[in-house]
């Protein structure tokens, strides 16, 4: 009899831990997370659901994998009021999100961007867009194409014309 083992996972999302309500979030690939309502409502999308009383059962988080959702929850935990004693410590912790060293970091940031967009988390969106911007800075056009896997669909003539049009931006 294995009912006892599964009972926990299949329980209703409307559980409470002490006086704090817990919400159940389910990632696209089926991973289930229990998160304090006070933390999850950093997502404007989830806050809207809570306010409309639509967060009583499991909330499906489409297009977000369990791996990414775990990172999002980590973000929420750190950004909960009182979780970190000072701004400096928070910034230091955030630096793991806002630097892109290689293509694997880059892909993580894309995933987080999509999650931040879907869940509407302004702080995370801002951090990730800033990370991508930092990765763009200082790169030549070809380096940018290489790093972001952007394929140019301009022919040589078109590119030359555009470069000329924006000549000021390419000097120095």
């Amino acid at each position: 009899m294995s009912t006892a083992a599964t009972a926990d996972a299949s329980s209703s999302g409307d559980t409470t831990e002490g006086s704090v309500r817990l919400l159940t979030l389910q990632s696209e690939d089926g991973e289930v997370f229990e998160v304090k309502e006070t933390i999850a409502t950093q997502s404007v999308t989830i806050k809207g659901m809570v306010d409309d009383d639509c967060a009583t059962s499991t909330i499906p988080v489409c297009n977000v994998t369990g791996r990414t959702l775990a990172m999002v929850i980590e973000w929420w935990n750190k950004h909960e009021i009182g979780a970190v004693s000072n701004e400096k410590e928070l910034k230091e912790w955030e630096s793991q999100f806002d630097t892109i060293d290689d293509k694997s970091d880059r892909d993580d940031v894309y995933d987080l961007l999509m999650a931040a967009n879907y869940l509407n988390i302004p702080t995370l969106l801002d951090c990730c867009t800033s990370a991508v911007a930092e990765a763009i800075k200082g790169k030549s056009t070809d380096e940018m194409r290489e790093f972001f896997d952007i394929k140019s669909d301009f022919d040589e003539k078109e590119e030359d014309a555009l470069r000329k049009e924006n000549q000021w931006a390419f000097e120095n």
């Binding site: 801002d126 867009t129 991508v132 194409r145 972001f148 952007i150």
Partner: peptide, 30 residues
């Protein structure tokens, strides 16, 4: 190429962190 597939408003938010010059440079990527 996932960056080009991001919703335009997100790309614009990325651009808002760049210098004017850097934004202009992106126009010749594709």
């Amino acid at each position: 190429d996932r960056i080009s597939e991001l919703p335009p408003f997100i790309v614009h938010q990325i651009m808002s962190h760049l210098l004017v010059k850097e934004v202009a440079q992106t126009s010749i990527l594709s």
